[in-house]
Simulated assay, not measured.
Amino acid sequence: MTDAPVPTATPVPTGAPVTAPPTATEAPATGAAEATGAPAAPAGEPPSEPAPRRVLDGSRSLRLLLGLAAVVIACAGLKAAADIVAPTFLALTLVITIHPLQRWMVARRVPRALAAAICLVVLYLTVIGLVLAMALSVVQLGQSMPTYQSQFVALYNDSLAQLDRVGVGSSQLQQALDSFNVGSLFSAVQGFLSQLLGATSLFVFLLAVLLFFALDSADIPRRLTLASRANPAFVAALDSFAVGVRRYWVVTAVFGLIVAVLDVVALVFLGIPLALLWGLVSFITNFIPNIGFVLGLVPPALLGLLEGGVSTMLWVIGVYSVLNLVVQTIIQPRFTGDAVGVTTAMSFLSLTFWAFLLGPLGALLALPATLFVKTLLVDGDPRNQWVNTLIASNPR
C-alpha cells in the first residue's frame, strides 16, 4: 500500500495582497444575483425596493380600481332596474316586518300556509288602505280648492303690490306671462299622467311580489338553518338585518302615528281645513328621513297662509317644528337604538343616493337599503367591521 501524497501550500509571492476567501453569507447572495440576472447595486447606493413588495402594492391598487368599477356598474344596473328593484325590496322589508306575527301563529299550531295567508291579507289591507286614503284625500283637496278662489286673488294682488315695492312692475310680469308657452303646460300634464300610470304599475307589481314573498316565507326559517351550517356569520348578519329593519319600520310607524295625531289636534285648534288629510300626509312623510318633515309641512302652512294670513302660517310652522324636534329628533332615536345606527350625515347621503338610484321609493327605502348594504359588505365579513367605526352613530 502506498501513502497518498500530501498537498503542499502554494507559496505566496512577496508583496502580493492577501485576499480572504468569501464568507458563507456573501456566497449565496452573489449566487442569487447571478442566478436571477439582477444587476448588482453600485457601492454607496441604497438597495432598491424588493420586487414582491412592488407587486403587492400594484395588486392592491388594481383591486381598488376593480372594486370601484364594480360599484359603478352595480349602481348603473340598479338605476336601470329601479322599477323592479324598489318595489321588490319594499315587499321584502314588509314581509320581514310582519314575520313575527306568522311565527306567533305557527307557535300556536296554526298551519304555516294559513299563517302566511293571514299575514298576506294584513299586508294587503295596510298597503291598499294607505294608498286609497291618499287618493281620497287628494280628491277631497281638489274639491275644496275652488272655495279658496277669493283668497288666491287677494294673495295674488298682495304679492303684486309687494313686488312693485321692490321694483318689479306689472309690465315685467306681463312680459313673463306672454313668454309662457302653453305647450309646456300640456307636456307637464302628459308627464304627470305618465308618472301616475307608472306608479299604478309599480303598485300592482308590489302586490304581486308581496304574494310570492308571503308564500315563500313559511319555509324561510328552515332554509336559513341549512344555510347557517355553511356560513353561520353571514346568516347571523341577515338575522341582524331582519331585526333592524323590523324595528325601524315599527318604531317609525308608531312615532309617525303619534306625530300625526298631534299635528291633527294642532291644525284643528288653529282652524286649518282638511286636518285629517295633513295628518295622514305627515304620517307617510315621517318614513322619509331628514326631508320628510318639510314635505309634510308645506301644504298645511300654505293653507294657513290662505286662511289666517302670515301669523297662522308661522304658528303652523312653529308647531310642526317643535313636534319634529321633540318627538322625531330627541325621543324616537332612543327607541330605534341601533336599528340602522348611522350618523346624520350618512343618513342624508343615503337618502340622496337611494333617491337618485331608485326614484321616489328610494327616498322611502333609504335607511333600510343602507342597512342591507351594510349587512352584506360589513356585518357579514369580520374583516370589514372597522367600517362601523366610521359610519355608525354609536360605534363600539
Results as ranks from 00 to 15, higher is better:
Glu307Pro: 07
Leu297Arg: 06
Ile331Phe: 03
Met313Val: 02
Leu314Gln: 01
Asn324Gly: 01
Leu305Lys: 15
Trp315Ser: 15
Thr336Val: 13
Leu314Asp: 00
Val319Pro: 03
Leu305Cys: 12
Leu323Trp: 10
Ser311Asn: 09
Pro289Ile: 04
Asn290Cys: 09
Leu303Lys: 07
Arg334Glu: 00
Phe283Pro: 09
Leu323His: 11
Gly337Tyr: 04
Ser321Trp: 12
Thr312Gly: 04
Leu303Asn: 11
Ser311Asp: 10
Leu323Tyr: 11
Asn290Trp: 13
Val298Lys: 08
Val316Ile: 06
Val322His: 03
Leu325Ile: 11
Ser282Asn: 15
Leu295His: 04
Gly308Ser: 06
Gln328Arg: 14
Ile331Pro: 08
Asn286Gln: 07
Asn324Phe: 00
Tyr320Asn: 15
Pro300Thr: 04
Val319His: 06
Leu302Asn: 12
Leu297Ile: 02
Ile291Asn: 01
Leu305Asn: 15
Ala301Gly: 03
Leu323Pro: 09
Gly308Asn: 05
Val294Cys: 04
Gln332Phe: 02
Ile284Trp: 15
Gly308Trp: 08
Thr285Pro: 09
Ser311Phe: 07
Gly304Thr: 06
Phe293Ala: 10
Val319Lys: 04
Phe283His: 05
Gly318Pro: 03
Thr312Arg: 14
Val319Gly: 01
Asn290Gln: 14
Thr336Gly: 11
Val310Trp: 14
Leu306Lys: 04
Gly337Trp: 03
Phe283Lys: 09
Ser282Arg: 15
Phe293Gly: 01
Arg334Ala: 11
Ile288Pro: 10
Val298Glu: 06
Arg334Ser: 07
Val326Ser: 02
Ile288Phe: 09
Val316Trp: 02
Ile288Asn: 11
Val281Arg: 01
Ile284Gly: 15
Val319Tyr: 11
Leu295Val: 07
Phe335Tyr: 10
Ile317His: 11
Gln328Tyr: 13
Leu305Trp: 15
Thr329Phe: 00
Val319Gln: 04
Thr285Gln: 15
Asn324Gln: 11
Pro289Asn: 08
Ser321Cys: 09
Thr312Met: 12
Glu307Ser: 13
Ile317Glu: 11
Pro299His: 03
Pro333Ser: 05
Ile284Ala: 15
Pro299Gln: 03
Ile330Trp: 09
Ile317Thr: 15
Gly309Ile: 02
Ser282Gln: 15
Val294Ile: 11
Val281Asp: 08
Phe335Ser: 03
Val294Leu: 04
Leu314Tyr: 07
Gly304Pro: 08
Gly309His: 05
Leu314Arg: 02
Val322Tyr: 08
Thr312Cys: 05
Leu297Gly: 01
Gly304Asp: 07
Phe293Lys: 01
Pro299Leu: 04
Pro333His: 05
Ala301Pro: 11
Ile288Cys: 08
Ser321Gly: 10
Leu306Trp: 05
Gly304Ser: 00
Thr329Ser: 08
Val327Leu: 14
Ile317Gln: 08
Phe287Tyr: 14
Ser321Gln: 09
Tyr320Thr: 13
Gly304Glu: 10
Gly309Arg: 10
Gly304Tyr: 08
Phe293Asp: 03
Leu297Gln: 05
Ala301Trp: 11
Val327His: 00
Asn324Trp: 01
Tyr320Lys: 14
Ser321Glu: 07
Thr329Ala: 06
Ile284Lys: 14
Val327Asp: 06
Thr329Pro: 00
Asn286Asp: 06
Leu314Pro: 03
Gly337Asp: 03
Gly337Pro: 03
Ser311His: 09
Leu325Gly: 00
Phe283Val: 12
Pro300Phe: 06
Val316Ser: 05
Gly309Cys: 07
Val298His: 05
Leu302Val: 08
